[in-house]
Nucleic acid binder design. Structure first.
Lengths: 343, 343
DNA sequence: GGCCGCATTGAATACGTATGCGGGTTGATT
DNA sequence: AATCAACCCGCATACGTATTCAATGCGGCC
């Protein structure tokens, strides 16, 4: 069995008494093959365990029926684990690709480096899905290059006008707004924001604006002493929380730009003897799996990862087939758990 | 820029004043091309943004420089999330693939269905990595088929003699042995095992044997009333824990076959008013991210996911290149956190 | 000086499929 | 009965690269 040469469409053609092109058309579902011939060919293909050679098919057709998923990782001293939120999205992306009959190629990319975005040029994939909280300063240039080269791609990120390429994201502003309103409704007035607030991280920036707007609504000032920068990682969250404590400002609430930051902050607070939620109410963003296991369970803003993944794949396929698509905003909804509700 | 035809090796050849084969050789590092020519060709390739067409390259060479990762998912009513432990391994596999210059194709597979293992036959990948706690009864047959078709693959699972293909796994028996010894050292004598104990799930079976051996060492009986079957999911863990409580047997320790089971059990125990670890000591297996965030933090058996991923990739490459490899056992080490230590 | 060997390169070709185009057959229409 | 369209199918070919084989030039050695 092992020594057998892999069957080709010629083998099937011979057995079926037709020509090779007919086999190709039959298996591919071309309407110009009669039902009888098609059935015969399919039967033979099945008995021979024939599968279309993707390499040859890709070469001839110019299509790979493969999408590439590029996961951006922030450059950190130690090897940073990938953000769990994006891992969650991965599942739904895999699922969606399978549904539409596409393969999925995945790889890490470091934002800083020139990432090898030659997946499409080298005919390894028909399009790209970009995922990650990247530093937009580094990022932007590369996106422009992708656009210039005519690469098909979609990106999960902050949906704003004037951005290169097709972006899909959740309503970061509305999510943070709702979360901060919730904190205010709990009677909190000194609410800190842990996370980068510059436009280097547009998604965090949107969340920060939502936070500020909620404060403004309530007539509260947006105190810069209550904002500490951090990217989305436990280490950064820990540093930020410590920095906040070190400033000596009083605070009774924390709006964290991501769950990883929030969870790290809760840990630091516990060590410092601040009780959550008795002394401080905490809300995160993303709803990673660990959020509901935390103690107390973390209130957070849920992004619908399943819907997001599906939408990314659909949008990319539309883009590839030439249909113009516009940026899409997914809802972000607050889920209240134990970390924010005042006893 | 967009309308430009993608450059081929012929374009480079013409510009460099050489033939196409020389370009191919130069870019691929063949020793039979002079250093001067190589440098010239590489320079031209760079300015043209040339990348080798993988489709053509794959077709001609018969190699794809791509590995496929198949994640097995237990068939569940609702859509089961993928086991976080395997997600952790995914990162290290991605990393290892990148290091050796291979692409990684990922996809879900349902154990029950005939999974489309035609990745290698259809020239989409050079080999397969199989990941998942599969039901071995369904699984076995498919593995035999892979072997029969001469497909290159490695599998993460229970390392035991007589299994088809190349298996790499952690020392499930030793891990469970250490964990159960630890429970006994805490003075626990009525220790339950939550997880399948049949050979349908060989890894769980190995863990169960470790559990039993530890009990035997201490002169404790292995009471079947203290074992409840469960696959690795929160739902199954919850059902198992409730079933255990419903039996009305006394118990003061739980050895869970996986962290998902353990975390679900801790939740059920809390609802039932049993305190962890005061009344019941709990230990899990896998060390998924949520384990350390749980309350109390979950003691568990750590599998080195990073090493595992690296090893899987390396072993598969060796297998592909024809070097015989033998099954490998990775260590599993107990990490003690709050859920098991008696106050 | 002729022959041999090494170092480079070119010519030719094969990998297996998908598709434009034209040819043949059939049945229906005038 | 002649024309025509619809329907199926085969011929030829192209996709871009990697590899086999032969050819060339060159220096060295007997």
């Amino acid at each position: 069995m092992v020594g057998q040469r892999k069957p080709t469409s010629f083998d099937i053609a011979q057995l079926a008494g037709v020509s090779q092109p007919t086999v190709s058309r039959a298996l591919r579902g071309s309407p110009s093959v009669s039902a009888a011939t098609r059935a015969r060919i399919q039967a033979i293909a099945k008995t021979l365990n024939y599968t279309v050679d993707r390499a040859a098919s890709n070469l001839r057709s110019g299509q790979t029926r493969t999408l590439a998923l590029l996961l951006f990782r922030d450059p950190s001293p130690g090897r940073t684990l990938i953000n769990p939120f994006f891992l969650g999205m991965l599942g739904s992306i895999m699922e969606s690709c399978a549904e539409v009959g596409y393969d999925l190629l995945v790889s890490f990319q470091n934002v800083e480096n020139d990432w090898q975005a030659d997946y499409e040029d080298s005919h390894r994939a028909d399009g790209l899905i970009l995922l990650g909280y990247g530093d937009y300063a580094d990022y932007r240039e590369q996106l422009d290059q992708l656009v210039a080269r005519g690469t098909h791609f979609v990106r999960w990120g902050s949906v704003a006008p004037g951005q290169p390429g097709l972006t899909i994201g959740c309503d970061n502003h509305a999510g943070a707004l709702a979360a901060t309103r919730h904190l205010i409704a709990q009677g909190r007035t000194r609410i800190a924001f842990l996370g980068d607030a510059t436009d280097h991280y547009p998604e965090f920036h949107d969340r920060y604006r939502g936070y500020c707007d909620a404060l403004a609504e309530a007539g509260l000032a947006c105190d810069p002493m209550l904002q500490v920068g951090a990217i989305s990682s436990e280490e950064a969250g820990e540093r930020a929380a410590r920095a906040l404590l070190a400033r000596g400002v009083t605070f009774d609430g924390i709006m964290a730009a991501s769950d990883l930051i929030a969870l790290a902050a809760m840990r630091v607070l516990a060590e410092a003897g601040r009780r959550v939620p008795a002394d401080v109410s905490v809300v995160g963003f993303d709803d990673i799996p660990a959020a509901s296991f935390a103690h107390p369970p973390l209130s957070t803003v849920v992004q619908d990862a399943a819907a997001a993944g599906r939408l990314l794949v659909r949008a990319l396929l539309a883009e590839i087939s030439g249909k113009p698509r516009t940026a899409t905003l997914l809802p972000a909804t607050l889920v209240v758990r134990g970390s924010s509700v005042r006893p």
